[in-house]
């Protein structure tokens, strides 16, 4: 396999998925964001957003905190240090690949 193709194959697939990439980009700027904010910014359905957040959480890239606002459940998401590093690495890899 050529080094270029290896670089492509080595991309972090958890971050690489478009919906999760948008979520990770938002959370790389935001310290934390709630479900409503992420849903509005990504345009994902509740089910889809929940699925992708769970995937990020399972990979150790996102921390999901479930609290309450009055009696209404409130979900806050943030990138973990590992998630932020994975996102930065992904961006660096993509930049290198596209510059070649």
């Amino acid at each position: 396999m050529s080094p270029d193709l290896r670089g492509l194959a080595d991309l972090d697939r958890v971050i690489h998925e478009p919906a999760r990439l948008v979520i990770a980009t938002i959370l790389s700027v935001a310290e934390s964001a709630d479900f409503l904010f992420l849903q509005r910014e990504t345009g994902l359905t509740k089910g889809n957003l929940s699925f992708h957040l769970t995937k990020l959480e399972e990979a150790g890239y996102a921390a999901i905190e479930k609290t309450y606002k009055g009696k209404i459940p409130l979900t806050l998401a943030r990138l973990t240090p590992a998630g932020l590093k994975a996102y930065k690495d992904y961006r660096a890899s993509v930049k290198t690949l596209f510059e070649k």
Binding site: V29, A30, E31, S32, A33, D34, F35, L36, F37, L38, Q39, R40, E41, L74, L76
Partner: peptide, 10 residues
């Protein structure tokens, strides 16, 4: 926040 959701920045 009730309209656009909550976000805090780094």
């Amino acid at each position: 926040y009730p309209r656009a959701g909550y976000v805090s920045f780094r």
